[in-house]
Write a protein that binds this DNA or RNA. Sequence first.
DNA 1: GGTTATCGATACCGTCAGTATCGTATTAAG
DNA 2: CTTAATACGATACTGACGGTATCGATAACC
Lengths: 204, 204
Amino acid sequence: MSQKIVKKIETAGKTRPGRPRGEDTDRVILEAALRLVSTRGFRNVTVDQIAAEAGVGKMTLYRRWPNKAALVMDALLVLVGPRTQFPEAERALDSLESQLFLQARFFSSDYGRLIRSLIAEAQSDMELAVAFRERWIEPRREGVIQTLRKAVAQGELRTKIDFQLATDMLYGPLYYRLLLGTGTIDRAFVRRLLAQFLEGHRPA
Amino acid sequence: MSQKIVKKIETAGKTRPGRPRGEDTDRVILEAALRLVSTRGFRNVTVDQIAAEAGVGKMTLYRRWPNKAALVMDALLVLVGPRTQFPEAERALDSLESQLFLQARFFSSDYGRLIRSLIAEAQSDMELAVAFRERWIEPRREGVIQTLRKAVAQGELRTKIDFQLATDMLYGPLYYRLLLGTGTIDRAFVRRLLAQFLEGHRPA
DNA sequence: GGTTATCGATACCGTCAGTATCGTATTAAG
DNA sequence: CTTAATACGATACTGACGGTATCGATAACC
């Protein structure tokens, strides 16, 4: 699966025999999967429903992805991933705050259900767990860490920060609320979370 | 389910007609469920396997719990819950640290898989989500908050603390790592997490 | 003894992920 | 134009599993 997630690099114009695959069929299927799963949740959507929504036979779907989880993961990476950019600002802390606000809105939208579904499914699907961690979580953590480094360089945070821990402390509570439903994920929450975080990371 | 989770209060010696239920059958089934699910995970264990492991017919099981999720949740509450006490210490911060260490060990043991399984299942099972939140998460959060209050009273933490947020900041990162697998959950992690938390909550 | 509810066992049902197959369509090669 | 190879939508099928129904036997109370 791991090499299949995120459309294989087109095998270099290699002209294969037989009828070629539909041009935008991949995207149509991904969009159908994204739409259904983000509104109803992974377990409440069947593969047949995704195929029907895309106006496609089930085999067309399984010819392109090895299983349901890989398809939905791909939908997230291809359709949603590129739209989750890190807002740039001169002050790194402003970038960080914007990023946290965006994350809060993201989790509060239908995409929150999508993320929850994938994390849930990943608990019993090792391949999905690896893909989600390496292709979704880690790149975004890296972005956060870069921002934190920049904030340190700008003298807004103390030096000698454990960046992994800091990232856990900023995002852990968001995922915690997303998955446990113990509280709302709104701007006020993020604001207080960040303020408290900064309180513990003042520069000397 | 919610009124069924955690053995109904025995209907007051009420002598019902017909053959009475087995004495310790409940416990035997719960222990089988706990053993299997905590080692293999919820999705990798079938109801038939639990029944076989308990040496019991499947119907005996469904006569006592409405479904698989309720059974496993009950196993957690009945067999594990009572063994997760809050360590007492004169210094509240020592209690807090001990509690976090215990939680880290708990998550690192087979019970970590059990908790992950239930949270995953709860993403598509509203009743389970409510039960898990109200009967497992919330009581333990309340214990943490009491400890934090005590620490404030002892002058170890500043006043005017957002206790809900503080609990999220302490436990969010632990659940985050448990569910995402982004890092180990060991004593070093907990120690640095708590140290960083305290850094942001010094008394005036 | 009659009533009632439990027991283990087993057959059964419905759902769903994933596979196989069929007739058709579309491309490149010859 | 024919042939080979692949994709297509549709549909039937398989296997696994959660949950239900049923059966003959058992154990309590009246």
